[in-house]
Simulated scan of single mutants.
Amino acid sequence: MANSSTGDSATERLVRILETFTPTRTVQTASEIGRRAGLPSSSAHRIVSELVENGVLDRDDDRRIRVGMHLWELATRSSHALRLRQAAMPFMERVQSRVREHTQLAILEQDEALFLERLSSPQSGSNITRVAGRLPLHASSSGLVLLAFGPAELQERLLSSRLSPLTRATLSDPEAVRRKLAEVRSLGHAIAPGYIEEVSTGIAVPVRDETGQVVAALSVVLPREAEPDFAVVELHRAARDIGRALGYRS
């Protein structure tokens, strides 16, 4: 696609516009989109109008812009993540009904844990995770599972970068994270007390596809003082069932 006068392509400008939308910023004006995307006002208004015409974005009666249903349709039509979520949902519901705390499914996406689904009840404790939200790999139980069973190149790249702690309990020393990853591989699950929020403990297990590759992490978030054993058993059981639904035979 053609480049602009500043050298960025039309594709790059389109992606920057879509990335201005977040789980907490779902409606914007065209001017706000342009400012956040770093685009001239005229370019932003023109591209936004074209995206609205094609259903990728929607404009409401107050001329505010939101992500369009057509974009959701295109994204989910042939998504491997949709197949994974559909296979996992019955077993996630079982975990949530028995553990009665937040139950989540995450995949590795651009060096972060991207959450595809979260089930909760009114009695569930504190949890900052959102569907389509992301968490750092080193700072979350799901991320630790995805990292521990991920490519060695990813591990080395992450451990050679600066790891920012989210709480006093978050592991940010590369050698401490390396030891934690070895523990996760040995135990087959990750327990992360206070890593994301000091009042909570994340517990995650790997989910394998038909090839035996780890493609997701299934997790629950418990109050910090809760015993993890029952949740660990339920998660392992559900992960095995999801794997079988995906065609994995251990």
Rank of each mutant, 00 (worst) to 15 (best):
M1Y: 07
M1E: 06
T6I: 12
D8P: 05
T11L: 08
R13D: 11
L14N: 11
L18F: 11
F21V: 14
F21Q: 07
T22F: 08
R25Y: 05
T26W: 11
T26K: 09
T26A: 12
V27A: 13
T29W: 06
S31K: 00
I33S: 04
G34T: 03
A37N: 06
P40V: 03
P40Q: 08
S42C: 09
H45Q: 12
R46T: 14
S49W: 07
E53T: 15
E53C: 05
N54M: 13
V56T: 15
R59M: 10
D60R: 05
D62C: 04
I65Q: 02
E73L: 13
E73N: 15
T76M: 00
A81V: 13
L82N: 12
E93S: 13
E101H: 13
E101V: 09
H102A: 15
H102K: 11
E109C: 07
L114F: 14
L116F: 10
L119G: 08
P122F: 08
G125Q: 02
S126G: 09
R130H: 15
A132C: 09
R134E: 12
L135G: 00
L137N: 04
S141I: 03
S142L: 01
G143V: 00
V145C: 09
L146I: 05
L146P: 05
L146E: 04
F149C: 02
G150F: 01
P151Y: 06
A152L: 10
E153Q: 08
L154M: 07
L159T: 03
L159I: 02
R162L: 12
L163M: 10
L163Q: 04
S164L: 14
P165E: 08
R168I: 15
R168N: 12
A169Q: 10
T170Q: 10
L171R: 05
P174W: 02
E175R: 02
A176C: 01
V177T: 01
A192G: 03
E198P: 13
A204D: 05
A204K: 00
V205T: 03
D209R: 03
D209V: 08
A216Y: 03
A216C: 10
P223A: 06
P223E: 00
R224T: 08
D229T: 11
D229S: 14
F230P: 01
F230T: 15
A231S: 06
L235C: 06
H236L: 14
H236K: 13
R237S: 15
A238G: 00
A239L: 03
D241R: 09
G247W: 04
